[in-house]
Design a protein around this nucleic acid. Structure first.
Length: 580
RNA sequence: GCGCUCGUAGCUCAGUUGGAUAGAGCGUUUGGCUACGAACCAAAAGGUCGGGAGUUCGAAUCUCUUCGAGCGUACCA
């Protein structure tokens, strides 16, 4: 990477300058303590390092330090180094950028994957919704971000296992079953509705989505219902619970599939309880001595590990809390041999972070193996007004949204903001196929690049004269441009499209920093910047010209661009269309 | 009350462990298609970085304080 090349040069020069006594009182330097940045003004160069922070130990002025370092750089023939104030500016030589293009041609789909990484076995858990209804828009954010992060970490080189924890064990399933009974009775002609009283109503899911479930239930269980003379109350509640749960799980899985989100496993909380792992976990905690009883319940002394209060593990009625199952679940993940657990949670669950980590520590595990990414919630904006998302009625579901604006746009908008900021999702804006929509801007750049290559290798018809214009080169000649790397052609391309090449160069460092910081919005920003550089290049530089060598060099650059853009879009799971 | 996240251009947001004139997209204004896709490009205007104090050679960034927004503070999940 360019950054590493530059930093190595500077650091080597620093050591040399120190030995030569040219850096004042400075006698040691810690590798990696100088940040490499992009100059504010591109006239200064491609990269820059500010050495002002060395002034403290050197006790000489920053410009003197910078000059002394530059004077001690070995072999300055490749690249340009200049000093302005405390900054050392760097302009990459042509040959470095030529090598970069060569790397793109040889690595293709895997270009951007860093070379030497510490590979980890990661389990990434996200969405993890109740199977009690359709996904709302907030779930869409976790789905988009989580699957993008999984793609990113895999591309980086990690082994990633994606898991969805199904919250199918609590009282909400009873609530779901009771609600289904009401819908079934309605379908059977009974005059019944959900209670009007607000408090009682909270024991039901009054959304319309259970109506089709009720219809299917009646169709599938005709005989069963007849056996009780169509009195729905005569059947066990569990029958309804199971039916509705399975139904909603399938609805959720189908939608995830459509949204290009693919889990390796759907882990049922219920099976966790049934396997005995939850009670095992309680016993282990008991042995750790961090357990006590109070008011008939069993408490975990999480406050010993930084939580602000102790937490109930077993309720007075003998049942386990949600936390208990969650502890057992995380223990189970570790027992399955993962090096690292990453969870994406909504910010409304942030109170849980301390207690889950506390429990892992109490059980003798390293709490640092668990990383929890807290995501702020989503506001839906329609016609400039925020729409409150309630689970009750008239909700806009994720499916509605996808049907309305498409998978590509939904994924992009859900992933494009920092996880720490509340996301305003503007449906009207996401729908437009105009300049306002960054997704189309980026995809258009890809389609345009494909179009140029098509034009170069296909015969065309002149729209005015009607004459056939022969292709400037054959498909096999074009393929040779990629397979047989020609440094001279690449050098021409670097001269013509230097800014574009530099943007291509940023891809690999981007993958490294994004994967390490677990941030995916940076990929969205990058594809926009990359597309912008390409559009700009396109408008200033004609690709297909009368000069065959110039044409070849520029075509190869267009191919490099399209390949890198497609690599980035693949991480986002946004399509890279050849035509639009 | 306490805890977490946030407050940067008209709007939506970047801003890497403190560093060059605080950046981008949209919107607004102006200009650009008789050659590869104008769903594009080029340029301009637009800011007391919520307010105040402090640390520092240097603060959007660190500390304190204050105002505002969202979320949490269950023997619910």
């Amino acid at each position: 990477m360019l950054k590493d090349y530059f930093l190595n040069k500077i650091e080597d020069a620093i050591y040399k300058a120190i030995r030569a006594g040219k850096l004042g009182q400075m006698n040691e330097y810690n590798k990696g303590s100088l940040p490499v940045e992009k100059p504010k003004n591109p006239e200064f160069g491609d990269l820059a390092i500010n050495v002002s922070s060395l002034a403290r130990s050197a006790k000489i002025a920053p410009p003197m330090i910078a000059n002394a370092i530059v004077e001690n750089i070995e072999d300055k023939t490749e690249c340009e180094y200049s000093v302005i104030g405390g900054f050392i500016n760097f302009r990459a030589g042509n040959s470095l950028l030529v090598d970069l293009l060569g790397e793109i041609y040889s690595k293709k789909e895997s270009f951007g994957r860093p070379d030497n990484i510490e590979k980890e076995k990661i389990i990434l858990e996200y969405v993890s919704a109740n199977p009690t209804g359709p996904f709302h828009i907030g779930h869409g954010r976790w789905a988009a971000m989580g699957s993008t992060l999984a793609n990113l970490l895999k591309f980086y080189g990690h082994e990633v296992y994606q898991e969805f924890y199904i919250n199918d064990a609590g009282s909400q399933i009873q609530k779901l079953g009771r609600s289904l009974v009401i819908r079934i009775k309605q379908e059977l002609g009974e005059n019944i509705d959900f209670p009007d009283d607000e408090v009682e109503r909270k024991n039901y899911y009054p959304g319309d989505y259970l109506i089709p479930v009720a219809k299917d239930f009646i169709r599938d269980n005709k005989d069963l219902l007849e056996s009780v003379n169509n009195d729905a109350d005569k059947l066990e509640l569990q029958v309804y619970c199971d039916y509705a749960k399975e139904y909603e799980e399938k609805v959720q899985r189908d939608l995830l599939d459509k949204f290009r989100v693919h889990f390796d496993k759907f882990y049922s909380e219920l099976t966790l309880h049934q396997s005995g792992k939850v009670s095992e976990c309680v016993e282990k905690l008991r042995k750790s001595g961090k357990i006590y009883e109070k008011e008939g319940a069993v408490w975990f002394k999480s406050s010993d590990y930084g939580d602000d209060q102790d937490r109930v593990i077993k309720k007075a009625d003998g049942s386990n809390t949600y936390l208990t199952a969650d502890i057992a679940y995380h223990v189970d993940k570790l027992e399955r041999g993962f090096d690292r657990m990453i969870d994406i949670w909504g910010a409304d669950h942030h109170g849980y972070v301390a207690r889950v980590k506390a429990s892992l520590e109490a059980l003798g595990y390293d709490p640092n193996k668990l990383e929890i990414l807290l995501g702020q919630l989503v506001n839906l904006v329609i016609n400039g007004n925020e729409v409150r998302m309630g689970k009750r009625k008239n909700m806009v579901t994720l499916e509605d949204l996808i049907d309305e604006v498409g998978v590509d746009a939904t994924r992009f908008w859900m992933a494009m903001r920092n996880i720490d900021t509340t996301l305003d999702f503007d449906i009207e804006l996401a729908k437009t196929n105009s300049d306002e929509n960054p997704v189309f801007y980026v995809q258009y750049a890809h389609a345009r690049a494909c179009s140029i290559i098509r034009n170069a290798i296909n015969d065309r018809i002149d729209t005015e004269s009607g004459e056939s214009i022969p292709a400037v080169l054959s498909e096999s000649e074009f393929n040779t441009l990629i397979s047989d790397f020609d440094k001279a052609l690449a050098s021409t391309a670097v001269n013509d499209g230097r800014k574009l090449v530099l943007k291509l160069e940023e891809f690999k460092p981007l993958i490294v920093s994004s994967a390490q910081s677990r941030q995916v919005y940076t990929i969205c920003r990058y594809v926009q910047e990359l597309a912008s550089e390409f559009h700009s290049f396109y408008n200033s530089t004609r690709v297909i010209t009368d000069d065959i060598n110039v044409t070849k060099s520029r075509l190869a650059l267009v191919w490099a661009f399209k390949t890198v853009l497609a690599n980035a879009l693949r991480i986002l799971a946004v399509s890279a269309p050849e035509r639009m």
